[in-house]
Every structure is written in C-alpha cells, then in structure tokens.
Amino acid sequence: MAGGWAKDGAVQDQIDASIDDAVQQARSRIPAGESLTRCEECDAPIPEGRRLAIRGVRLCIKCQEERDKEETTHSPINRRGSKDSQLR
C-alpha cells in the first residue's frame, strides 16, 4: 500500500525501473566486434584464450580489473534498503 499521493505499487515500479536501467547499462558495456590482440590502454598482449572467450575484448586482464574496480566504487545507485540512507 502506497502512502500520500503515490499510487499503489509505486515503490515496486521504482524498483523495477532501477533494475531495468541497471540491466540496460550493463548490456551497453558488453563489447562487440573483433577482439584486439593488444590492450588499448597499456599495449600489453591480450591472451588468445581471453580473446576467444570474450567477443570484442579491448583490454588486458589487468586493465579490465582496474576499470571494473573504478566502476563499482563510483556507483550512483543507492543499494541500501533503509530510508535513513536516502537522507544522507
């Protein structure tokens, strides 16, 4: 039951929209096309197994790990469930 001026199910609609946005963002980051043989950031060779496993790979493992680490630490999405976290 929603309170105030919100319709019933508004909270669930917001949750669903957040999930849809996150899925769309993740899909947009999936590489496509031909894989590179050398990393586009550090010019290190990309192992053949990685190129075969991931279509369109552009980074070596080390550079990809660094990029993944940066993305997870700067996430703008509030993952905490309490209302208090939204007030901070």
Results as ranks from 00 to 15, higher is better:
Gly33Ser: 09
Ala32Glu: 14
Glu65Asp: 12
Gly56Met: 09
Val23Met: 11
Leu87Ile: 06
Ala17Met: 10
Ala26Pro: 00
Arg29Glu: 13
Ile77Glu: 12
Asp8Gly: 02
Ile30His: 04
Pro31Tyr: 10
Thr72Trp: 01
Ala53Cys: 01
Thr37Met: 04
Gln14Arg: 14
Thr72Lys: 13
Leu59Glu: 00
Ile46Leu: 06
Arg29Asp: 10
Ile54Phe: 05
Glu70Thr: 08
Lys69Gln: 15
Ile54Ala: 00
Arg79Ile: 05
Ile30Phe: 01
Gly56Thr: 07
Arg51Asp: 02
Glu70Trp: 09
Gln86His: 07
Glu66Met: 10
Pro47Phe: 05
Cys42Trp: 09
Gly81Glu: 10
Ser18Cys: 11
Ser85Trp: 08
Thr37Asn: 07
Val11Arg: 12
Lys69Trp: 05
Gly3Pro: 02
Glu65Gln: 12
Glu65Ile: 02
Lys7Cys: 03
Ile46Asn: 01
Ser35Gln: 02
Glu71Asn: 12
Val11Lys: 12
Ala10Glu: 14
Arg80Glu: 13
Arg50Ala: 03
Asp16His: 09
Ser82Ile: 04
Cys63Pro: 01
Gln25His: 12
Asp8Trp: 07
Gly56Asn: 08
Ala26Asn: 08
Glu40Tyr: 03
Ile54Asp: 01
Cys63His: 00
Arg50Tyr: 00
Ile54Tyr: 02
Glu70Cys: 01
Cys42Asp: 15
Asp16Gln: 12
Glu40Leu: 14
Asp84Leu: 11
Asp13His: 09
Leu52Ala: 10
Pro31Ser: 10
Lys7Thr: 11
Ile19Tyr: 06
Ala22Tyr: 11
Met1Asn: 03
Ala17His: 01
Ser28Leu: 06
Arg79Leu: 11
Lys62Asp: 15
Gly49Ala: 15
Leu36Glu: 11
Asp8Asn: 15
Leu87Pro: 00
Thr72Ala: 13
Glu70His: 08
Ile77Trp: 03
Cys42Tyr: 08
Leu87Phe: 05
Ala6Ser: 14
Arg80Lys: 11
Glu40Met: 15
Thr37Gln: 10
Ser28Arg: 13
Leu59Pro: 02
Ile46Lys: 01
Arg27Val: 05
Gln14Thr: 13
Ala17Pro: 01
Cys39Gly: 03
